[in-house]
Design a protein around this nucleic acid. Structure first.
Length: 649
RNA sequence: GCCGGUUUAGCUCAGGGGUAGAGCAACCGCCUUGUAAGCGGUAGGUCGUGAGUUCAAAUCCCACAACCGGCACCA
């Protein structure tokens, strides 16, 4: 492209490819105005060579620009949310003088701002702050950007008591301009860009919650007060978001677990689950499914719950993980036992029984291992984060050359299981060496490469999670996406250099020498408890038939149909269907409502007609239609559907 | 663990120094019923736990616990 004819002119390429010439120093606002008054009015910011900048920023060089309006969803939301965060800070400082501002970034669906203030904010403060924010929007305060000298900025923010801001500036790279944005007469350090006035923000925002948050995310630092908010392009989007939150709440596994009589928790067993008959049916269905999935390639074992302290000292857990372990003392024997937080040391003990040959490898040792970890009280959450849980665990002992192949095998199992359980969308992360680790760099290089190669060979894309590996080895982490788009990290494949070494696991190699086996940890579901929680929320309690605790209810309309209904239940059960009879003296409306609320997938209604004809009237959960068919056809239909996915043709 | 909030019947929630209420569920009757609540009645609570103030505490004060929302943690 040739340079512009005149030195004071620059060439601006617009999104439609059109190139227009403007005076050097032209602003996005001016370009928008030159294109049309509508665009000028709608303009929020400029995308200058792909980077969002202020509308009033002078453009000095030839560039490709796009005027960003509310129609550009991602950019518009970014701009609006960031401005709303500033608006929040401005309102808070107006209402609560002496409050320091710190940082206020955008997050998914909104933003937050962290404040330093001795008095805590209360829930009642939120509507007040929100009202103030709307006032500031109505005032349509103009935005102004200034670039300050670093030392001046630090001195200024210190002088006005904004010590956190001063600290932020001091930590900014020296290459960075120190930009201060004014909204009316309030100002804040910010990298920008911002909308040209507060009126552009609109009023589709809402403050959501208050929480504590540590300065710079470090629990050793002071705790700040965080206010979360959400902001959208218009009221319609805001209300759609709020509706989405309500819908998510309806899926809450704690609520559904109670309503569907699946499980409960109580104070005397904090962080542990009481599985009710229906919940445990679901649990066993899932467990047996996994058991079938691994039947051909794995051996299943069961290891002790309580193991002597000396074993944990040897495994390294005593040093690294003790504060998370439950201990049991046996005074008579002066012993301290620990409740296992993991199954791996136990599995190595089994591996170590008897001499293994390279011909025996790989040994894939699985256990539905009941583990207990003393999780911080604040981390507990329903059955998703508990202190007593069961891992669908396995450890694979192999020769080092088999590592990639075994990682592939484990990963493919994970993908297959997720797909069969109704999760199509799965992402993979490769977590690499953390600062605090054991093992030489060469060993880490090799292990990370093995896992990366496994992904490549499967054709599975992965994102790198640098520094997030376990201290004993790198890992692959599998995150599935549920029905409403939330990610749940469940499966994992981890290399372990630590345990085989510490427990001196060995096998006899081809040349007769003793070698250390490589070890992989792997879990598909992760924890049974957590995964069932995910399933409940994913399906909103409406499980596919094969998982549903009660698959069919035969409900009578008149008492004359009772014997027929009982026989129908018998026949259903004989076909392997979890069926129950509802012979109560209630209207069919009442029964339909009740079993629908209980989320029974198939309601089989038997009245006088059905009893006489040997038919049944099927009503499926979620449908208002019903279909009458011969009982044996209904049984065949349901039996087919009740077949677990791995057993289908 | 930290910050804030909450805790009253099985569930959802009201009440707020004078001894506890509603709806639904449960139980008992009546109704034999045709696809999302038929009618009537009965019963049900150490008001999270402990300690205090008071003539009197579910209510006020303190401590603790559990739960909820975040933060931190998540071998």
């Amino acid at each position: 492209m040739s340079a512009a004819a005149h030195p004071n002119e620059i060439r601006i390429t617009l999104p439609d490819g059109l190139v227009r010439t403007f005076t050097r120093g032209v602003t996005g606002a001016e370009i928008a105005a030159a294109i049309g008054p509508g665009l000028a009015k709608a303009a929020l910011a400029v995308k200058l060579d792909g980077k969002l900048v202020d509308l009033d920023l002078p453009i000095l060089h030839d560039a490709a620009i796009a005027i960003v309006t509310r129609k550009d969803e991602a950019d518009a939301l970014d701009l609006i949310r960031h401005d709303t965060a500033h608006l929040l800070a401005q309102a808070v400082q107006a209402l609560f003088p002496g409050t320091q501002v710190t940082i206020g970034p955008n997050i998914e669906d909104g933003f937050f701002y962290d404040f330093a203030r001795n008095e805590p904010f209360t829930p009642e403060d939120l509507p007040r702050i929100e009202a103030k924010m709307k006032e500031l929007v109505a005032a349509d305060l103009p935005t102004r950007r200034e670039v300050w000298d670093r030392e001046r900025a630090i001195a200024h923010f210190k002088a006005i008591g904004e010590h956190y801001k001063a600290e932020i500036i001091a930590d900014l790279p020296t290459t960075e301009d120190i930009k201060v944005y004014f909204h009316g007469d309030w100002h804040d350090l910010c990298r920008g860009p911002h909308l040209m006035s507060s009126g552009k923000i609109g009023t589709a925002f809402k403050l959501m919650k208050i929480s504590g948050a540590y300065w710079r995310g470090d629990a050793k630092n002071a705790q700040l007060q965080r206010i979360y908010g959400t902001a959208w392009r218009d009221e319609k989007e805001l209300s759609a978001y709020l509706t989405r939150l309500e819908e998510a709440e309806k899926r809450d596994h704690r609520k559904l677990g109670r309503e569907m009589d699946l499980f409960h928790v109580q104070e005397e067993a904090v962080g542990q689950v009481f599985w009710h008959p229906k919940g445990y049916t679901l649990y066993r269905t899932l467990e047996n499914y996994i058991r079938r999935k691994i039947a051909d390639a794995y051996v299943e074992v069961k290891t002790p719950m309580l193991l002597d302290r000396t074993l944990w000292e040897r495994s390294g857990h005593w040093a690294k993980y003790r504060e998370n372990m439950f201990l049991a003392e046996v005074e008579d024997e002066k012993k301290i036992l620990a409740v296992k937080p993991m199954n791996c040391p136990g599995h190595v003990q089994i591996f170590n029984q008897g001499l293994k040959s390279y011909r025996d490898l790989p040994i894939r040792m699985a256990e539905f291992g009941s583990c207990h970890r003393y999780e911080p009280s604040g981390a507990l959450h329903g059955i998703m984060r508990v202190r007593g849980f069961t891992q669908d665990d396995a450890h694979i002992f192999c020769v080092p050359e088999q590592m990639t192949e075994e990682a592939i095998r484990a990963s493919e199992l994970i993908f297959e299981v997720y797909r069969e359980l109704g999760f199509e969308n799965v992402s993979v992360k490769l977590s690499t060496r953390p600062e605090n680790r054991i093992g030489s760099d060469e060993v880490w290089d090799r292990a990370e490469a093995d896992l990366a190669l496994a992904c490549d060979r499967m054709g599975v894309p992965y994102t790198l999670n640098p520094g997030e590996g376990a201290f004993y080895g790198p890992k692959l982490e599998f995150t599935l996406t549920d029905a409403i788009g939330r990610g749940w990290q469940c499966g994992t494949v981890q290399v372990d250099f630590n345990l085989p070494e510490r427990f001196e696991a060995e096998y006899v190699a081809e040349d007769g020498s003793r070698q250390r086996p490589a070890m992989l940890h792997r879990a598909v579901l992760g924890s049974m408890e957590r995964f069932i929680g995910v399933l409940i929320e994913h399906y909103a309690g409406k499980f596919p038939l094969w998982l549903a605790p009660v698959q069919a209810v035969v409900a009578t309309i008149v008492s004359d149909a009772e014997d027929y209904a009982k026989d129908a239940v018998k026949a259903l059960r004989k076909a392997g269907i979890r069926a129950e009879a509802d012979l109560r003296n209630e209207k069919i409306n009442y029964k339909v409502r009740e079993h629908s609320l209980a989320k029974v997938p198939a309601l089989l209604v038997a009245g006088k007609k059905e009893a006489a004809e040997g038919t049944i009237s099927i009503r499926r959960l979620g449908s208002e239609k019903q279909e009458t068919m011969p009982l044996k056809d209904a049984i065949a239909l349901l039996a087919a559907e009740a077949t677990p996915p791995d057993l289908r043709e």
